[in-house]
Nucleic acid binder design. Structure first.
Lengths: 119, 119
DNA sequence: TTAAACTATATAGTATACTGTATACTTTTA
DNA sequence: TAAAAGTATACAGTATACTATATAGTTTAA
């Protein structure tokens, strides 16, 4: 699929896709049998990656942190142990974020009570 | 307490505190009985606010979003209904983020399995 | 077949959230 | 009491993550 369709599929601007590709987060490829242009084609993997990026960004991970995970995910050049290490560390961070969100819920619930109870 | 102590209390650079104050997230005050300088004093409320800011930032909220909550929290000039509205919307967003984090955990767990199982 | 739409590359500009520097004054400490 | 440390203000600079613009070539549709 070409960049335009990938953008529609993921509901994300084309410029952002180009930016992610330049940042090494996703990778499209030229088709050997197409010689008249140098259009870049993307596959399902790119969709998966972009969806993951969106999710991770929404919970406060930076693109640098996200790239670490994506590399552990897809780069077979990295050793098994190193891959698992990155993923385990990310799981810890995720649990920390869940804990923080739960703490925020608590705080906001108490704040709501204060507002309701005051005259 | 002066800015230096607030910074130590919250483990945050003085410059960041000044930036937060200029952004309207926290508010210190001069002391009427101190006439030789114009030092700004901060109270426990500033600590609470900065701790909240740190937590909210860690899970991807912007300072603008955080300011909304802090205003709903502390500004009595806003109507009760409006305050509760802001807080309820934030609770929804928090639940969405928790859901995204849980989905990420799932994905990473599956990825780990794939890495472990492949030879 | 030509105008509209799509693609690539390069470069500049923007928004958010700081971070650093310069200047000037005040307080603390050796 | 003088040097070191702390404080305020203003403004410039930086990092991250886009977003826009210009240019040039390619493909598609009327």
């Amino acid at each position: 699929m070409l960049i335009n369709q990938l953008a529609k599929e993921c509901q994300i601007p084309i410029g952002t896709i180009r930016f992610y590709e330049k940042s090494g987060l996703i990778t499209g490829s030229r088709k050997a049998d197409v010689t008249t242009n140098n259009y870049i084609y993307y596959d399902e993997e790119s969709i998966d990656k972009i969806r993951f990026i969106q999710m991770a960004k929404a919970v406060g991970f930076t693109l640098a942190e996200i790239k670490e995970v994506i590399d552990a995910w897809y780069l077979r050049s990295i050793s098994k142990a190193a891959q698992l290490d990155v993923l385990d560390k990310k799981l810890v961070q995720i649990d920390e974020k869940i804990a923080e969100l739960k703490a925020m819920k608590q705080q906001i619930a108490i704040c709501k009570q204060n507002i309701i109870e005051r005259d």
